[in-house]
Design a protein around this nucleic acid. Sequence first.
DNA 1: AATGAATGAGTATTCATTCAT
DNA 2: TATGAATGAATACTCATTCAT
Lengths: 220, 220, 220, 220
Amino acid sequence: MGIGAANRAPRWKRRSGARPGEIAEAAFALFLEKGFARTRIDDVAAKAGVSKGTIYLYFENKEALFNAAIDRAVLPNVARFEGLIDSSKGTTPELIERLLAMMAKVVTATPVGGVPKLIISESGNFPELVEHYRDVVVLRIHGLMAALIQRGIDRGEFRDDVDPIYVGRIMGAPIFLLAIANAIPTFRDAWKIDPAKHAAEAAKVILDGLIPRERSEVQS
Amino acid sequence: MGIGAANRAPRWKRRSGARPGEIAEAAFALFLEKGFARTRIDDVAAKAGVSKGTIYLYFENKEALFNAAIDRAVLPNVARFEGLIDSSKGTTPELIERLLAMMAKVVTATPVGGVPKLIISESGNFPELVEHYRDVVVLRIHGLMAALIQRGIDRGEFRDDVDPIYVGRIMGAPIFLLAIANAIPTFRDAWKIDPAKHAAEAAKVILDGLIPRERSEVQS
Amino acid sequence: MGIGAANRAPRWKRRSGARPGEIAEAAFALFLEKGFARTRIDDVAAKAGVSKGTIYLYFENKEALFNAAIDRAVLPNVARFEGLIDSSKGTTPELIERLLAMMAKVVTATPVGGVPKLIISESGNFPELVEHYRDVVVLRIHGLMAALIQRGIDRGEFRDDVDPIYVGRIMGAPIFLLAIANAIPTFRDAWKIDPAKHAAEAAKVILDGLIPRERSEVQS
Amino acid sequence: MGIGAANRAPRWKRRSGARPGEIAEAAFALFLEKGFARTRIDDVAAKAGVSKGTIYLYFENKEALFNAAIDRAVLPNVARFEGLIDSSKGTTPELIERLLAMMAKVVTATPVGGVPKLIISESGNFPELVEHYRDVVVLRIHGLMAALIQRGIDRGEFRDDVDPIYVGRIMGAPIFLLAIANAIPTFRDAWKIDPAKHAAEAAKVILDGLIPRERSEVQS
DNA sequence: AATGAATGAGTATTCATTCAT
DNA sequence: TATGAATGAATACTCATTCAT
């Protein structure tokens, strides 16, 4: 528009890369790192390699982008966990061991592990997001846990004097703790939790308890 | 954070008089309710019945107020937990049961239960606060847990093939989960967890495990 | 307005084809309804059934489109008013009555009645447009009015102690007021002016005045 | 906040001049000159000699400032017009002549003359403002006009076959036209209307009409 | 000719912090 | 001590315009 505009290089080029997926991916990384409020749309644009306006071409506003970014990262993982159970033929204790191990790995090795902390952080600002997350993620995972407990009870592998709902939640707690601790550098760096060991010890305790068995062969 | 941050004196040293206590108390309630960013100094001043300027008489800035408010609310409670163990003469399983029950009650019945969520929420903004909290609160609680496990091992009450550090953390996880869930209305209202039952089931699982005992008398 | 404005070609020279007409028509409706700033080029494109880019094929920019849209709607009407006089053979009072009635009808029954309000609204932003409108529309209409007054004076139908220019403007004022009021819903709906009655009363007052005639036959 | 802040002069000083009235006055001038959208809060602040934040101390938002600015300028004037009638003892034609002359002077010599144009300009954006203006200003003025006509009819000074409401509006139209023309430089500079003459000719036409009186003494 | 994805300048509003009183 | 009026930095969102296809 002003003087000198004529000899400026083309300001943009139709790039196949400017897709909502890439924007959501860039946004997800930034939201994880800085939270909602401190993530600037400009930064998302820069990281995604597009202009600010382009973001608004695909997402109605910052909040919509936030929701999309989380969904995109989380939803595929829940199905993985459910799949592990459905396809498995082992004993319930084996299933639980395997599930905890996998979850511990996912929440520490993939960005999705940062989601619980992110959701908690923003729960005050976005109650609807929390509801959504509760219904499509947490509820499914807890349902999965409870179903496993029930499976063990039904097959005579587990004691029958526990409440599967409560115990399912309790069984998931160590993974939740791991996810949170891993997402906060101050804790991650100080604790240096070994995810595999964490999962193994949790399975050990949950399945056999701390009080020693009379028969040595019961020990895992 | 910026230039000169390294040699800055601790920022949350409160000054003197009776006023700072009232201000910190008002601030704590608001920070719990709305988080750091959405709590306005004006609101704290109004709630504490002082003018905005007065707050700056006692606290260097909003962050110092935040730190002071949390310290004031949390520190007295940690000692209570430690006291439970020191003075007790019972078996370790009994101690654990009692500790979990008390913690479940505290995190659901007193405002301090909202602190973990608050710390997590603000962890990205205030790494120093998180360090402080980690060292004077979480570390002590996890130390307490680990010491209990070790006590059980030493007394022959617990199996000796577990890592007390890891298991201590795992044992605390259900309480942590309870505190977080209780602090987020979306979860609290949907789950309606009974704190006593939650603690009891957690103790049951942690001590005895899900796999049934051969001998019935081992059951708690 | 800026550098280089002086030697710029007229910006509202429309290019060619049938499309520009449809675009200008759609634009006119939207400009009337929402004003310049709140009319989005996207909306014009949608209403005209073309893409946004196409508009820029025919109009240099939004302002040129605005100018073209107004010209297209207004110019044909001025000629109609002038024609009324040229072809008429009646007495001057009759001509004035008829002209006012026709104008009142046009400004309330056709979209062009919204133009004066639109021009006034945007006068601060587009002084050049106002000049153009003043010269090709207002000046001609006021000239017409003044000519009518002069005709009446010359034919001995009107008193000769008035200034035709001033009185021409004054005679047009009620129509101007009617156009503005009609273009603003808040006034249109509250006043519900009957255009024919408005024109008739205006003619009555302007021709005979409020002070009663001694002789009844002088009354129109 | 950055380097160099320490040796900066005090950034502000409690000034008695920083009052809502002065802010509204500065805002009024700018709104008249540039309209609502193109008036920046920064400019208002600069013109009023305060900071941007101070404006929000006294006015909830830009729209509230707009309303306040207009009210402040307009309301006192309406009362003046009404006062002219109430206190007057002359004949109705004399009153009308005097009222038109005063109005013509006010709308051309004081900033309030710019308000009608401003209201029209923003009518699309602020229908509530228009309603307010219609009710507290226009309605009162038209009521005043209609009352005058009625007074003339009642006293036998005016013919009784006119509708005072319609004629009141028609009588106000030349003043309205004058206000608008005067507020738009393109018209003001081209027409150079003499307000006194405009008012006098309007009174002449409205009272006596264009058609000559039989009796010469009726002529003004 | 026609398209529509991409661009990026421009601005109201909030609220922590200061400091004259 | 205490006040509270004044400050000003920081950021989401819109939409006219461009230009590769």
